[in-house]
Each structure stands twice: as structure tokens, then as C-alpha cells.
Amino acid sequence: MKMNPWTLSVLLLLAGPLGADPDWHVEYPDSFCVVEGSTATIPCSFTHPKVHKETGAVVDRVERVVWCPKHQICQGPTPNVYDSSNVRADSRFLYLGDLVRNCTLKIIKTVKRDAATYRFRFETNGGGYTGQKGVRVNVTVVKNVRLTVSSTDGEDLKVRSSVTDHVLKEGGQVTLTCTSACSFHQLDVHWYRNGHTLSETGPALHLSCLTNDDAGNYTCSLDSSGQKTTSAPWSLVVLEDEGRNKCGSDWRVTVPVVSVLLAVFLFLLAGLVFAKRSAPGPEHEIVYSEVVR
């Protein structure tokens, strides 16, 4: 069966370098979900042989890397979101990888049109290769839940707790998890208490050694401003535990004991200093012996 040159060239491009073997490889997840407006990371790695199997040429450097959506080949003038040889690539797509092995891509503030199958291609001094499988990125819209009682029905973004009770004692601990209809695969999640930004980020917030300062309404957001895609609040009440501090030690007993011991130590130290100053020195002993004579 005859095959026209164009079809043959396309098949070769899809397969990578002529005579490609398993050493030419791109690895990324099949697909994952991204919440609109959030920042997500596509993990990716690639490998290539040290020597071209067919030509025997040494493959010792990667000269160009490209990420493109909705295209099988990802080569030449194909529209792309990142091209290491083009400084005018889309600024929302950041290449976190290198020219050695890592091809990770970060998507900032995703929008609906970002939904696509993305493929990575790298070109070396001995040939090029495109990760044919690609990774499907699905973008889902999460409702913004305003802080009202009626809006909690059907919300997409929620704060879930590791405990069933909202009332905890001092010294206790709890882990809050931000969840949605879309899985949080390396998403940037921001946390707030009573509307104030917390320094902790990530899908999970761990609170330990609880004190009354930890009490309040906790919300999570996929937007650093806290104005978009914000969850309904999860309220935490911390009860004072008589005789214990936030980490469970008996401070009402410990503090007085330490105070007494410190006072005794200072008293003994003062007595030692006073006794040392009152003791006769060598010159006093000489004078005394002369008087006796």
C-alpha cells in the first residue's frame, strides 16, 4: 500500500525521532481538574537517549521546549502557550521546568478557555519528540458562597473538619480541609479567620495547641484577594480548660512552682554574695596577728 509523503511525515512527527525507542519519553498525568480563577501546576518529566539509535549521533543537549494546546504535533508554527525560543509566550503559563528532565507547567488564574489537551515537545541536537498522550485539563466553575445562611445550600466550595464538633477545648487540635467539586491538584488555597488572611496556604489547615485566639469563622478561597470562590464559614469555638494551657501542660501549678524555685535561688544567691563580702580577707588576718603580739 502506498502512502503519500505528507502522511508519512506526520506519522514520523507523532512518533518522535526516526526509530524512536522508550528512551524518548514524556510523562504527565492523563487529566485533572482545575478550578476557574485558581493557579494549578501540571507535573511533567521527560527523557531522551544519549545516543540516537538510528544515526549514532550523540544527543547531549535540549535546545527548545514547547507546550501547546489542542494539537497533535506541537511543532513549527503551531499555536502554543509556552515556547522557550519565544519570549512573547502567554504570561499566564509559566515554565517551571528546565532543559534536562523537568517540564512542569504552571497555569495562573485559569479561565474557561484554558480547558484543552496540552502536549509537551522537546527538541535536541539529535532530534525532537512530542508526548503524544497529552494531559487533559478540565476547568470547572466554582460558585462564590457569600457569608449568609441561605447560601450554604448547594455550595461547591466547602471547609470540612477532622472533628464533628465545632466546640473544642484549649490544647486541642483540628485539621480543616478546603474541598470542592474539582479535585485540588496542586492548587493555591488561601485561608482566612474572621476575614483576615492567615499565613498558611494549601488545601489543608492544621490547628494545634488551640487557644481562645484561634476561635472564629474560617473560610478558604482560591483567590488571594478573598473576593472570589470563597467558601461558607466554618465556626470554631474554643473553651477554656481550667488548669491547662494551650498545649495541655498544667500552667496554674507550674507557674507558681517555678516562681517559688526562682525566689529561693535568688535568696540563696544573695546570701552567698553577702557571706563572701563579710568574710575577713588576708589583710585582716595580718593585722589581727600583730595586735596579739
Results as ranks from 00 to 15, higher is better:
D214K: 05
V137R: 04
G127D: 03
H185G: 09
Y95N: 11
N212M: 08
R146Q: 09
T201P: 08
G97D: 05
T164C: 05
V145Y: 04
D213P: 10
G195Y: 03
C103F: 03
F120R: 07
N125A: 01
G97Y: 07
Y118C: 11
L105G: 11
L210P: 01
T197E: 05
G97A: 08
W191V: 00
Y82D: 03
D156M: 06
L205R: 00
N80S: 14
V142F: 08
T201N: 10
V142R: 07
G202M: 01
S180Y: 02
D83V: 08
T78H: 00
T124G: 06
N138P: 02
V100W: 05
V167I: 15
V167A: 10
N138E: 13
L198F: 05
F120Y: 09
N138C: 10
N125Q: 07
N102C: 10
T148W: 00
S199P: 04
G126N: 07
R101I: 05
E170N: 03
T152M: 12
T140E: 14
H190V: 02
S180L: 02
N212F: 05
V174K: 00
N86W: 11
D114G: 10
G126C: 09
K112H: 12
R101S: 15
V111F: 09
R119K: 11
R88F: 12
R92W: 04
K109Y: 10
D153Q: 15
R121Q: 13
D114H: 15
E123I: 06
A116S: 13
T148K: 05
F184Y: 08
V100E: 12
N102R: 14
T78I: 01
G128Y: 14
D153W: 11
V100K: 13
W191G: 01
T148P: 00
T164M: 06
D90P: 11
G216C: 05
V139A: 09
E200P: 00
P79E: 08
N144A: 05
N125Y: 02
R88P: 00
T140A: 10
T201H: 06
G127P: 11
V159S: 06
D153A: 15
A89V: 09
G128R: 10
Q186G: 09
C182A: 15
D114P: 08
D165Q: 12
S180R: 02
W191C: 00
H190K: 02
G171E: 03
T78E: 04
V167K: 10
Q173M: 08
A204F: 08
R193T: 03
S162K: 07
P77G: 10
G171V: 04
K109C: 08
C103E: 04
D213A: 12
P77S: 13
S199C: 01
K169G: 13
K133E: 10
V174H: 00
H196I: 13
Q132W: 12
T197N: 07
G128N: 11
T78N: 00
C103R: 03
S199E: 12
G134M: 06
Q132T: 10
H196A: 15
V159L: 01
C103V: 09
N86M: 07
L96W: 02
Y129G: 03
V111I: 14
T117F: 01
V100A: 13
L168W: 04
